[in-house]
């Protein structure tokens, strides 16, 4: 009876994990086809659709914009989030919890509503439909991800270390640079990685805030999926899968996946 139940639950779990991973496998599989049609399983293996993807003007421009926006997002977000995480550490437990929730709000509220608010507000500022406007949207949404990762990394640092450093005569900044920074560097890297991936995949914000004539990769992919349907789309999407995969491996190596979430 127990053996039966155990195998039943193993099958159930296997199905759920398959459910989680199958779509990703499908995308990667389709992008590797040597055939002309987007079909699964792929007809022969080749990388030619990646070539076509990079050959397409639309996708190339979109990729460039996405990389640019994601790169800027990482720089801004990691700086601001590191400072905020240091502040969070200095707060009392109660206040810290409230501060943390406040910092996570952009993650907890639907992207669509934030995008709509930003659309109006940026227009008000004269930044509607401009690159800086789009950039601001990405920074706001990506911020909580970096904040979470850096706070988690800082929590691993014993406050006594900072006190020890201070007692040895180091100033606040020196303590940060010599003691805290080396210990949370991996957390900052993880946070940056999260921010990059989130920005690279962001859709709704980009849809409402994109500059006139500019398209990010997810937007280009969406248009492509709605109008054409060939493996170039799969190649574009596979790029996102590869980023995520590298991200997961890197995070596991740097800080351990468990601690990052």
């Amino acid at each position: 009876m127990t053996a039966f139940l155990r195998s039943l639950s193993a099958i159930g779990l296997g199905l759920i994990y398959a459910f989680l991973l199958l779509p990703l496998v499908a995308v990667v599989g389709a992008s590797l086809t040597a055939g002309e049609m987007m079909r699964l399983p792929p007809q022969g293996l080749s990388l030619k659709w990646f070539g076509r993807f990079l050959g397409s003007e639309t996708f190339r421009e979109a990729l460039a914009l996405s990389l640019q926006v994601a790169g800027t997002t990482v720089l801004v977000v990691v700086t601001v989030a590191t400072l905020a995480a240091l502040c969070h550490r200095a707060l009392t437990r109660r206040l810290g919890a409230a501060f943390r929730v406040a910092m996570l709000l952009p993650l907890l509220l639907p992207e669509l509503l934030t995008a709509i608010g930003l659309l109006f507000f940026l227009n008000h500022l004269g930044l509607g439909k401009t690159l800086p406007g789009l950039q601001i949207g990405h920074v706001v949404i990506a911020f909580p991800f970096a904040f979470l990762a850096i706070v988690a990394a800082l929590e691993q640092v014993d406050p006594a270390l900072e006190e020890a450093s201070a007692s040895l005569g180091a100033s606040g900044f020196e303590t940060f640079r010599r003691v805290v920074l080396p210990l949370v560097k991996s957390g900052m890297l993880t946070g940056g990685l999260f921010a990059f991936i989130v920005s690279f995949d962001m859709f709704t914000i980009s849809l409402l805030l994109k500059p006139i004539g500019g398209n990010t990769l997810p937007l280009a992919l969406f248009d492509f999926l709605t109008y054409d349907f060939d493996p170039t789309a799969a190649a574009a999407a596979t790029l996102s899968v590869i980023f995520a995969f590298c991200g997961v491996v890197l995070i596991e190596r740097l800080v351990g996946l468990r601690r990052a979430f």
Binding site: Y17, L22, P23, L24, P218, F222, A237, F243, A244, L257
Partner: peptide, 27 residues
């Protein structure tokens, strides 16, 4: 194994909604 299963669960988080939806279209 914990890390592997954990990765299976969180890695979709790092992949865009669009891509994941696209996977279902393909399937």
């Amino acid at each position: 194994w914990h890390v592997v299963f954990f990765a299976c669960i969180v890695s979709p988080l790092l992949i865009g909604v669009l891509v994941r939806n696209f996977g279902w279209m393909l399937l």
